[in-house]
Amino acid sequence: MPSLVSEYAAGTLFGAALFAAGVFAPSTIVAQMKLEDFTMVKAMLGASATSALVVHLADSANLAAMKPRTPQSIGFFPYDGNIVGGAMIGIGMALTGACPGTVFVQAGAGLPSGIFVLGGGILGGLLFVSAQPAIARLRESSGSSSSSEAVTKTELTVPKSMGISPRIVVAMWEIMCFGMLQLLSGLESPSTGTRALVSPVLGGLLIGTAQACTIALTRHTVGTSGAFEDVGRWLRNVCSGDATKGPITASVMFDAGIMSASALLARFLLPAAVTQVSSQLVTPTVAIAGGAVMAFGSRLAGGCTSGHGISGMATFSWASLVSVGSMFAAGVLTAALR
């Protein structure tokens, strides 16, 4: 099992990459959902293209078994948890200007809204842990567990379900990401009040490089939302009178690394005044509520923009493709209706 120090080190590298790319700014994320600014999508495409290569090479070299994300079921059909959970993440992103990964960058950098969203995320983790028994009963009563296992064995990823070589899918993915970046390159992003340290594409490459470092250090891909569930479970146990096991887990240490790196970079490389301006889009009430919805959804979907969007899509997992599609569909709709 990877050490907590390795998790923390990997988190600092991932947090530094997110910070450098500028995708943590609430104004940037909200503008993305309004389809006014494509900085976030450009960075995700760069990160996804790089991560796909990294994950494929790590798997081929037997450095680590790159397990794809599995279908998450509420109890109706195999991917309903991915759809509902992904939609909840998208709604939370449009409301808060954060995602389950960038919220740790925001909080570390000192953005007021980020701190409130983080608090809401912890609340969402507690709510999810409390709801888990009911979700499990619903799954058992509908018999969806067995159907999810069947999907897991035969149709977990695009290459397996279509009978295509993973190398061919990787090559097609690289071409698609490059083509989409070319199409988006002509779209100028308006100023959102926060200066990124690098371009979105270079930021995506840095995020993909952080993915490689994470695999080397921890033998698993990046993911950030597990900490909400871990802390929520600890809080539930404390409320029940059981405080024997603390909240320090691998996921919590990874996210602590993100916050630490962001705090240092914000202090020395980004003016505090610019950081504060980017956070004025979100009120504390909306931040807490949106954070709770977002964190609950990320655990219901079994991943977030990092776990599904960067890592899961790099393995060509159907669950990740469904989750990310639901995120952006719900996020764009929510932004349009606000």
Rank of each mutant, 00 (worst) to 15 (best):
V105I: 02
L333P: 00
E155S: 14
D80Q: 08
T249P: 14
S141D: 15
I258N: 01
F24V: 02
L270C: 08
P26K: 11
I310P: 02
S320G: 04
R167F: 15
T39W: 00
G246C: 05
V103K: 03
A131T: 09
A171C: 14
S48D: 09
A65N: 09
F14Y: 07
A131Y: 06
G114P: 05
R139I: 03
G179K: 13
S278V: 04
V252Q: 05
G92L: 02
S185H: 14
S260Y: 01
V170R: 09
P68Y: 11
K160Q: 15
T152G: 12
Q276N: 11
A336Y: 09
F316M: 13
G90H: 00
T283V: 12
E174W: 15
A9L: 08
R236T: 14
F268Y: 06
K34Q: 10
I168G: 15
L123F: 13
R219F: 15
V54E: 06
A49D: 03
G307V: 11
Q182E: 15
N237D: 10
A227N: 12
I115R: 08
V222H: 09
L127P: 02
M33V: 11
P68W: 13
F14G: 01
V23E: 04
V169N: 10
F104V: 13
G92M: 00
S51E: 05
S320M: 03
K34P: 03
R219N: 12
I164F: 03
F316S: 09
L183Y: 07
S199E: 10
P271S: 05
G186C: 07
M88G: 01
A227I: 07
S298D: 03
L333F: 06
M259W: 03
A210Y: 01
T70V: 14
T28G: 06
N82I: 04
A21C: 05
L123H: 08
C213M: 15
P247G: 14
A94D: 04
L202M: 15
V103S: 04
V332M: 00
M88V: 06
G124I: 00
E7W: 02
R137W: 08
F19H: 03
A263W: 00
I83Y: 00
A287R: 04
I122R: 05
G204I: 09
G291C: 02
V5P: 05
A273C: 07
K245S: 14
P100H: 09
T192E: 10
A330C: 04
D37C: 07
S185I: 15
F14A: 02
V252N: 02
L270E: 05
M93L: 12
S185F: 08
G179W: 13
R236M: 07
G312K: 00
V222M: 15
P71A: 02
Q276V: 10
D230R: 15
V222I: 14
M313A: 10
V151R: 11
K160H: 13
I91V: 02
A17M: 00
R233L: 11
Q182A: 09
